[in-house]
Design a protein around this nucleic acid. Structure first.
Length: 239
DNA sequence: CACGTCAATTGGATGA
DNA sequence: TCATCCAATTGACGTG
């Protein structure tokens, strides 16, 4: 699970929050962590709550520190004023309500380019990309996840169009085959009727051993050919 | 203001 | 147990 990381990262960058009033002893958290984490437990503990949920905790956090919003806005404005690549990674510095981050064109295009090269990142690539884009690794990871989801969705749409067309083709084919079958049945019936009529008026010539019509003294020979309906459908609909 | 987009979150599955 | 992925969802923001 990346929950641990998520927690660290999303709550990380909490330096400013820390500065504005959650003394928190964040330094106790992990000295090795570059971006000190603001654990919800701090707020929760402070109010004797047990909730571990992120959202809950965040709302508790907001609830607990109503003044935060101003700081948030200030932070945001400050962040917006920064250079493009610097902006995104500042997004969660307040550790408060989620704010919408828009990646810059440069960041997006580089991520796209990277995605085209390899739709999945190994940790090294992720780290390098994050460093290069001045984003947190988690942000890069999330971007790739969302990007894969978008790709899959688009592919599904393409597949859907293809399947619809295929379905139409098969429906047409099915209709053609049914018609052909009906015709064949009709001709078969007609043929059997004709045969009955023919046999009732035929007799064998004792001389040449061929079938002749009774009323035809010229030995009009009946060719033993294919039934007449055979060539009506030289090509099956399946061809 | 409804709606679309997209970064971010959540929770479950899976493999090492 | 941990890292990673995915699906579903949330929420901020831009736009018509």
């Amino acid at each position: 699970m990346d929950k641990g990381i998520e927690k660290e990262e999303e709550e990380g960058g909490g330096g400013e929050v820390c500065d504005i009033g959650l003394g928190l002893g964040l330094s106790n958290y992990k000295e090795s962590i570059v971006e000190p984490s603001l654990t919800l437990g701090l707020c929760v503990d402070a109010f004797g709550l047990e909730s571990k949920g992120k959202q809950t905790s965040l709302s508790q956090w907001k609830h607990c520190f109503g003044a935060k919003r101003n700081t948030e806005i200030q932070t945001d404005e400050a962040a917006t004023a920064k250079a493009s690549f610097g902006r995104a990674s500042d997004e969660e510095e307040d550790g408060g309500a989620r704010k919408k981050l828009r990646l810059t064109k440069e960041q997006s295009s580089l991520l796209e380019k990277s995605f085209k090269e390899h739709p999945s990142l190994n940790p090294k690539q992720k780290q390098a990309l994050a460093k290069h884009l001045n984003l947190r690794p988690r942000q890069v990871e999330v971007w790739f996840q969302n990007r894969r989801a978008r790709t899959k969705f688009k592919q599904t749409e393409v597949d859907l169009v293809f399947l619809k067309k295929w379905f139409e083709t098969l429906t047409d084919e099915n209709l053609k085959l049914r018609k052909e079958l009906q015709e064949l049945k009709r001709y078969k019936f007609q043929s059997s009727v004709n045969t009955k009529i023919a046999t009732s008026t035929l007799s064998m010539c004792p001389k040449c051993q061929r079938m002749t019509g009774n009323d035809d003294g010229d030995h009009a020979v009946l060719q033993s050919s294919k039934p007449f309906f055979f060539d009506h459908f030289p090509y099956s609909a399946t061809c």
